[in-house]
C-alpha cells in the first residue's frame, strides 16, 4: 500500500515544527544504533512490490515490504539477493535492510548491499520526494545519492522505495565443515581466495571452519572433492547471518571488528570470524575495556553490536565527522530524521 502522502505530511509537519522523528520499519534492527529521541513514525505500512521483471534482474519495492516476501518472490524465479541481508526477526523490512546497510556472509564473494542498490525514492528532511538512480545497473547521471542511503540509517532521507539488482540463484550450493583451528583456517581461506573457486562463505565458529560453495555443478563438485571436509546442512549459514548461531548469541557485549582479512587479530579477541576473516566477532563481559583503539590500530573499525547503547559505531576522524554533519545538514536541514542514530550530534 502506497502511504507516500501520509509519510510526506508527517515529515513536513515535523520539519515545520523542528520536532525529530524516530523512523521505524519492522523494528528488528533497533539495537543497531544509538537510541533516537523523537516521535515514532512507522514505515511498515508503506509496503508492496512495485515492479519485478525477472529478465531485467531488478526488483522495486516500497520500504515497508518484508524481506521475507521479497525473498519468496525471488525464489519462485530462481533469483536471490546476493548480499544476504540479515534478518533479526520475521518483521525485517527492505527499508530497514537498506538503511542499516548490513550484508551477510556472502559479502566478500558477491558484494555489499550498497553494491546492489540501483535507485531510491526518498523524502528529504523538508518532506520533498526525491528520486535518485533508477532501475538500470549502469547509471552515472548525477551523484550516486541512492548508494549513500545504504547504511545512513534514515538520517539523510526517509526511504520510500528501493530498486535492487537481483542475482540468479547458483545451480548448486553445498556446505562443508573442517576441523581446523581459527588461524590455520584463516590462512587456508586466504590461499583459496587467490584462485577462481566457487566459494560463497567462509567462517570459523571457534571450533570448526565452515565453507559454502555456490556455482555451476562442475566447479562446485570438483572444488568439494579437492577440499574434502564434512558435508553439513546449509542452515548454518542462515543462522550465522541472522546472529542466531551459538558462537554469536552468548556474552554480554558483542563486538564486530571489520578489517583486512590478512591482519592477525590479538588472541584475546577469540577465534570467531566471518567474511573470510574480514570480520571478527568478539564476545566480552560488560565491564571489559572497549575495542575502538585496538580496531583502529589494525586498520579496521569496531561496532558494538550488543551491549552499551551510547556509543555503537567507531568514532570518525574530526574532518570526516564535520563532513558528515555538513551532508546531514544538506539533506535534513532541521535535523529531524533519526538524529543521533549514528553519532551524537549527527
Amino acid at each position: 500500500m502506497d502511504q507516500t502522502p501520509a509519510l510526506t505530511e508527517a515529515v513536513q509537519a515535523a520539519a515545520a515544527t523542528h520536532r525529530p522523528l524516530r523512523l521505524v520499519g519492522g523494528g528488528t534492527h533497533e539495537f543497531y544504533g544509538r537510541p533516537v529521541e523523537g516521535k515514532t513514525l512507522s514505515i511498515a505500512g508503506h509496503k508492496g512490490i512495485i515492479d519485478y521483471d525477472p529478465s531485467e534482474l531488478v526488483i522495486t519495492a516500497r520500504a515497508g515490504t518484508r524481506l521475507s516476501e521479497i525473498e519468496a518472490v525471488l525464489m519462485e524465479n530462481q533469483q536471490m539477493l546476493a548480499f544476504e541481508p540479515p534478518k533479526f526477526g520475521p518483521a525485517a523490512t527492505l527499508g530497514g535492510a537498506v538503511a542499516t546497510g548490513l550484508s551477510g556472509p556472502r559479502r566478500p564473494f558477491a558484494g555489499a548491499l550498497r553494491d546492489f542498490v540501483l535507485g531510491a525514492r526518498i523524502l528529504d528532511g523538508r518532506g520533498q520526494a526525491l528520486h535518485f538512480g533508477g532501475t538500470v545497473f549502469k547509471n552515472v547521471a548525477g551523484f550516486d545519492a541512492f548508494r549513500l542511503m545504504a547504511g545512513a540509517q534514515g538520517g539523510l532521507g526517509l526511504i520510500l522505495d528501493i530498486s535492487l539488482r537481483v542475482t540468479p540463484r547458483p545451480r548448486l550450493e553445498l556446505a562443508l565443515a573442517f576441523d581446523l583451528d581459527s588461524e590455520t583456517a584463516r590462512l587456508k581461506v586466504i590461499d583459496l581466495m587467490r584462485r577462481p573457486l566457487p566459494v560463497s562463505g567462509a567462517f570459523h565458529d571457534g571450533a570448526q571452519l565452515h565453507l559454502r560453495l555456490s556455482g555451476g555443478d562442475a566447479a562446485v563438485s570438483s572444488t568439494a572433492r579437492e577440499l574434502g571436509g564434512e558435508p553439513e546442512h546449509l542452515d548454518v549459514w542462515g543462522n550465522l547471518g541472522n546472529l542466531t548461531h551459538p558462537a554469536l548469541s552468548e556474552g554480554d557485549c558483542l563486538w564486530r571488528i571489520s578489517m583486512a582479512q590478512t591482519r592477525t587479530a590479538p588472541e584475546d579477541w577469540g577465534p570467531v570470524w566471518d567474511w573470510a576473516g574480514g570480520v571478527r566477532w568478539v564476545r566480552q563481559a560488560a565491564d571489559a575495556p572497549d575495542l575502538w583503539d585496538a580496531a583502529a590500530d589494525l586498520g579496521g573499525h569496531a561496532t558494538l553490536f550488543r551491549g552499551s547503547r551510547d556509543k555503537v559505531f567507531q568514532p570518525l576522524a574530526p574532518a570526516v565527522l564535520d563532513l558528515h554533519k555538513r551532508l546531514k545538514a544538506a539533506m535534513d536541514p532541521h535535523g529531524i530524521l533519526n538524529p543521533g542514530r549514528l553519532y551524537e550530534g549527527l
Binding site: S103, A152, S258, W275, V279, L321, H324
Partner: peptide, 11 residues
C-alpha cells in the same frame, strides 16, 4: 577502509 566496509556514511 582496508576492510570491506567503513563506519558512517558511505562517502
Amino acid at each position: 577502509s582496508e576492510g570491506l566496509d567503513a563506519p558512517g556514511y558511505d562517502l
